[in-house]
Each structure stands twice: as C-alpha cells, then as structure tokens.
Design a protein around this nucleic acid. Structure first.
Lengths: 209, 209
DNA sequence: CGGCTACTATGACCGCTGTCATAGCCGAGG
DNA sequence: CCTCGGCTATGACAGCGGTCATAGTAGCCG
C-alpha cells in the first residue's frame, strides 16, 4: 500500500479509508483517524468542515479512483491482455493481501454502502460514483481487449459484483477460496466475449432484449 | 416477509436482522431492536445474556437459515428447475423488494461481515456459517438439477458472490440494473454445467487442478 | 398463604462519539 | 513592533451506546 505521504489532509483521507475497510464506517472514530494519520485532531475540523460525512465521502471517492488506477496498472503490466487475465489480476490483489497480511480489511466502498446507503445520502452517492469509476475503468479495459462495446458494461458489472461478493465470503471464511473460485469460473466466460479475428459471434448474447 | 410472530425472543432476533440489514451492525441499537420488536427492553438481557454479540450472531444465523429455506422454496416452485431459473428466482427476490419497497436494506450477513469480521470473532464465524448454510442449499439444488457434484460447490459460490456484489451495487446506485445484469450474464453459464442426457462434457472444466 | 421461577420494567453508570468553542503557535507582510 | 491567516491544540458538551443493578409482576406449585 505505497502512498505518497503528501499532506496531512491526504493522510487523513487515506487513513479513514483504511479504517473503514477494517471496521466499517460507524465504528471508525474521527479521533482514531487523526491518530492513525499522525495528524493533529484539530486539523479534522479545519480540513473537513463538513464533518465525518465529508471525510467518509472523500475516502470513498479516493478508493474508487484507487481501484480504477489499479485496473489501468494491471492492464499495463499484462503482456498479452485478456479479460480473464485482468480479472485474475484484480482477484490476486486480494488473495495476495489476505495471504500476506490476514483478513483484516474488505472493500471500503462496500463498507460505506452497507453502513450508509440508507442513512447518509451523500455517502451513498459517493459509493455509487466510486463503483461507476471502477466499472468504467474495467469496461474501457475490456473494450481495448476486443470485447464488443455493447457487452463491456455488463461484463464489468459482473466482474465487480463477483469480486465484491467473493471478498465478503473470503473475509467471513478467512479463506481465499471464494476468490480463487470466482476467478477460475469466470475466466473462460469473460474470454469468450472477446471478438475473434475471424469474426465469429463471440460466445454469449450480444445484447438481448 | 411473512413471519410467524411467535415469541418475543424470535421477534427480537428477526427485528435485529431487519435493522442490521438497513443500518449495519454498529448503527443498530439494542433499544431500537426492542422497540421494533414490540418487546420489553428488559427482555434483552433476559433472553440474550451474551449481550449484543449474541443477538447479532443469532440474527445472522437466522438469516442464513432463511436464505437456505428460500432456495428450497424456489426449487419447489419452479416447474422445470434449471440453474439459471434458480438464480433468476434468487435475484428476483431482491429486485422485487427493491422495486416495491425501495433500496433500504441489503443482506444482513454481508452487513455483519463488513462490520464485525475483524472485531468480533464469534460474529465472523456466524457469518461464515450462514454463508455455508446458504451455499450448501444452493449446491444441493444444483445437484438435483444434474450438475456434476464436483462443480456444484464452485457454482454455488459463484452465484452467491455475484448476488451479494450485485446487491451492493444496486443499493449504491438505487437501481436494480446490476442485479438483472448478473442474472442475465450468469444464466447461460450456469445452465451449461448441467450434465446432458447424451453424456456430453457439460461445458466448463470438471475440476481443474 | 409462602416460595419459587420466568419475565418485565426502569433507572443509573460509564465510555465513547462527533462537534463546537476557544486559545495558541508561527511565518508573512507591512 | 503589530496584525493577519493558516494551522494546531485542548477542553467541554450533549447525546447515545451497551450493560449492570434492582425492583416489580405474573403464574405455577405446594
């Protein structure tokens, strides 16, 4: 989890995301965020006059951008990009973390959704935007791999849904099996959507009605 | 959400599950549970001497059994059971609720996982058990539809992961699109795993290493 | 009637939360 | 020197959380 360590403000947003990932939004205290970020408590109300809501919203937005960046990075690192390869890389990020550092954290956007979707409208919107950012990045990546445009959105949604759900299962079970399972099962399905050079129909419906 | 309304104890567990579904574990107060269940506050410490943890754990367990029961019920209600039909029914339960009553609630087991996986070991185990109960019911249903035994577990995991993730997306977006998308995309994949009467290989790997 | 058990009913306690208010530091600018 | 603004630093406050302690009720048994 390399970070630039720039200003105290960024550190606080980052720390908030980390704590939310672990304990959920409600159980994450402002004081705790300040301590974790090695930032003075007084800076909280200085940088986030909107209070906890603003801090959480920014943490969620940060997480969305971070996830989208990772997708771009995966794409660049894959020698021969395929949908299954991208999905495997996304999943591997989680299995690697869980095997190296334990099952302490989940997805902060998921946590914000669970804790705030009904009670804090702005956070719900922030979560929706974060998911959209992430899904958009995945969909663009799929387009670049030859997946027909009318399929990229649906497949990106499928990938992220499966990943998010598998993260939940893995964390509950303290076992990465759910993650490896969805990667293995979905891989061939995703690759089947790639438009073949011979112009074959590219398995799956192309936009059912 | 028909319920038997039996004893006050059951009502409290049920109400706890409902509130956790909506606001998460941390934001759900014991007093609130008692009020919602129309139960006396004093009964909380009488029936749940283990405190909030015990109540939450039981609510999670209840949710797991409820989900498994639903799977069995779906199975009985489908004239010609297919994996895609089962998955569509599971998804439809959520789209129906969201369209009828709004996006107020998610899955209580997911909420418990997000809020307590790291901080409350017993709740994490309860969530794991609930997912296992649910996954087991789905896997058994798939077996009854002719899916090879060595595939049912993985497919059940895939179904539940996708469903849970899609619930998150739907709630964040306040739009059932994610749910309908995963149902549409996964349907054919699931049906392809059914062992055909002619003994064809039943698409997909049969148990990779 | 007394005694016992199951359950109900309140009130108090302590800890923690987010937020507000106030005051202090400190470099820049005049 | 003083002033000002960005930032820091604490302290206090009101509210709510779960939990404990205690007392009350209802019903059954003898």
């Amino acid at each position: 989890m390399a970070k630039a360590e720039r200003g105290p403000r960024e550190r606080m947003v980052f720390s908030a995301a980390q704590l939310i990932r672990r304990d959920g939004v409600a159980s994450t205290g402002m004081r705790e965020v300040a301590v974790t970020a090695a930032a003075p408590r007084g800076s909280l109300q200085h940088y986030f006059p909107g209070g906890k809501t603003q801090l959480v919203d920014e943490a969620v937005g940060w997480a969305g951008r971070y996830a989208a960046d990772r997708v771009a990075r995966f794409l660049a690192s894959l020698p021969e990009p395929t949908p299954s390869g991208l999905f495997a890389a996304m999943v591997r990020q989680w299995t690697d973390e869980y095997e190296a550092a334990g099952f302490a954290g989940g997805c902060p956007v998921a946590a914000a959704t669970v804790d705030c979707a009904e009670s804090v409208p702005s956070t719900r919107k922030a979560a929706s935007a974060a998911f959209a950012t992430w899904t958009g990045a995945v969909a663009r990546a799929l387009t670049g791999m030859g997946v027909p445009e009318e399929r990229t959105g649906a497949l990106a949604t499928l990938m992220i849904s499966s990943l998010e759900g598998a993260i939940l299962l893995a964390r509950a079970d303290q076992d990465v099996r759910a993650l490896t399972t969805v990667a293995r099962e979905l891989g061939p399905v995703l690759d089947a959507a790639v438009r073949k050079p011979d112009g074959s129909p590219a398995g799956g419906h192309t936009g059912a009605g």
